[in-house]
C-alpha cells in the first residue's frame, strides 16, 4: 500500500516537473520563466521527496528526504527573489505592455539618489 502511494506521488512530481520545464521554454521573458521554474519545479521535487518517505518509511533515507523539503522551499524562494530583483534592476522589460508597474518609480528614485 505504501509503495503504491509512493509511486503516485513520484508520478505527480514528475508531471509537475515536466510542466515546469515546458514553461521554461514557452514563456516569453525572465519573469514568467521564473514563475514556472520556481513553482512547478519546487512542488514537483517536494512531491517526489514525500514519495521517498512512503517508500522507505521512517528510516534514515525517509526522514532525510522530508527535512530537505523546507530547505528546498526556502532556498528556491530566496533564489527566485534575488534573480527577479537582479533582472529588474538590470533593465529587462515586463512583457510588451505591462498592466501595472509600481516598482518602476521606486527604482528610478533610487537611481536618482545614487547619482546625487
Amino acid at each position: 500500500m505504501n509503495s503504491i502511494i509512493g509511486v503516485i506521488l513520484l508520478f505527480i512530481g514528475l508531471l509537475f516537473n515536466l510542466f515546469g520545464c515546458i514553461g521554461l521554454i514557452r514563456f516569453p521573458d525572465v519573469y514568467n520563466r521564473l514563475q514556472a521554474g520556481t513553482k512547478c519545479v519546487t512542488l514537483g521535487t517536494s512531491s517526489m521527496l514525500l514519495g521517498m518517505l512512503f517508500f522507505f518509511g521512517f528510516s534514515e533515507a525517509g526522514i532525510k528526504a522530508v527535512i530537505t523539503i523546507p530547505l528546498l522551499f526556502l532556498s528556491a524562494s530566496v533564489a527566485a527573489h534575488a534573480l527577479i530583483r537582479g533582472s529588474y534592476i538590470f533593465g529587462v522589460k515586463i512583457g510588451d505592455q505591462p498592466i501595472k508597474d509600481d516598482y518602476k518609480e521606486q527604482v528610478e528614485t533610487d537611481e536618482k539618489n545614487e547619482v546625487k
Binding site: R26, F27, Q35, K39, I94, G95, I99, K100, D102, Y103
Partner: peptide, 19 residues
C-alpha cells in the same frame, strides 16, 4: 501549481504580467 501548469500548457498562454 495547477494555475501555472494551466497557463503553461494552454495554447494561447493567457498571461498578463505586472508588478
Amino acid at each position: 501549481n495547477f494555475d501555472v501548469a494551466y497557463r503553461v500548457i494552454h495554447p494561447a498562454m493567457p498571461i498578463k504580467p505586472g508588478i
